[in-house]
Design a protein around this nucleic acid. Sequence first.
DNA 1: GTTGCAATGTAAGTGTCGCTTACATGGAGA
DNA 2: TCTCCATGTAAGCGACACTTACATTGCAAC
Lengths: 199, 199
Amino acid sequence: MATARGYHHGDLRAALIRAAADAVEAGGPDAVSLRELAQSLGVSTAAPYRHFADRTALLNEVAALGFADLNAAYARAQAGAATPQAAMRETARAYLNLAFGRPGLFRLMFASDLVGAADAPASLLVPAGEAWESLFRAVAALDPAADLATVKRRAITGWSTLHGFITLVQGGRLKGFMTEPLTEAELLDAILDKTLNEA
Amino acid sequence: MATARGYHHGDLRAALIRAAADAVEAGGPDAVSLRELAQSLGVSTAAPYRHFADRTALLNEVAALGFADLNAAYARAQAGAATPQAAMRETARAYLNLAFGRPGLFRLMFASDLVGAADAPASLLVPAGEAWESLFRAVAALDPAADLATVKRRAITGWSTLHGFITLVQGGRLKGFMTEPLTEAELLDAILDKTLNEA
DNA sequence: GTTGCAATGTAAGTGTCGCTTACATGGAGA
DNA sequence: TCTCCATGTAAGCGACACTTACATTGCAAC
């Protein structure tokens, strides 16, 4: 991989994914331009289409890598926890870390239509589904006696609270409301407590 | 207004806002093309720029009308309720009605960057701020003894849960998870109960 | 009424975008 | 060594947001 760049690039596919991930992080999903990526990598504007059917296919790949990262973080969180409660808390923190640590990637994964698209490829749906199942298992472990519907309700409600908070904060909706007597960290703790204490 | 369309349109500005609102509802914020709107209204592609500085300015106007509608619905909900609990419940339902009844508009108002933008105009920020304050008042009325930070925390947490649930459902993230032993209606009730019962 | 002007329209053009088509190159296997 | 095919390029299409220079017209002052 990566020759001194003659006619052939060497590993254009991987380079495109890397560059696209950088662009997503810098300016969100809409900031990814195939022409721009191609130019920055020193290839023609048509070259990316040898590796990806269209812009969406490239973004799908970036999002899939994001879900792979998230799943790995979930696994670490749950493996290193002493109790189901600690595992749940660390799982939620992993989600928050991704959201606030790599907001561009998070938006691509959760705020775009990629996963919800009717023609979403398995390479994206599978890791996205694994993330949900991992979260579900963490909730189920909190209360082994709970039936399926209860666990689902708890998982969906908790996920909704976390996700909604992230979305509102990143959309700038809470500016000026979290400052005075209430910090973001306090809110996060309150939300985590609430998510945990409902079991 | 609205002559038989000679050289001048009559009320192009209002027609553009209406057409843009329809387009937003049909395909989301990204589906609005100024060229397309202009063509459908029978004017040149440059005409819209006599009334809106750019595409974002037009979308801001549509979103502002959406917030005006939401505020009116909030006011109705709170005026017609016998107790603070009922008022809160109806307020939340008004939010849900907008989200699921007019999802395209909802996405424009809450999932786009318009309100969060650094250069968002007052014509948008004012009604958006009113919506938040209306929600805040409804939460505060549930428990007059609660201090400011507590009310804020409850309002933000409850809003987050509602908003996150809507976002996840509309993003297709819960497909196949809400079907079997758990319907969407049950979940909504559970979420409303949870939002109410924390006071 | 006539006239002047500002509001509101148009035609044409710029630069960017995603994507396609036809052709060029060269590395890997027979 | 030769050939094939993956991978690259050049050129172009249509759509997009937006700009500029010019055309039309309703309205208000006279």
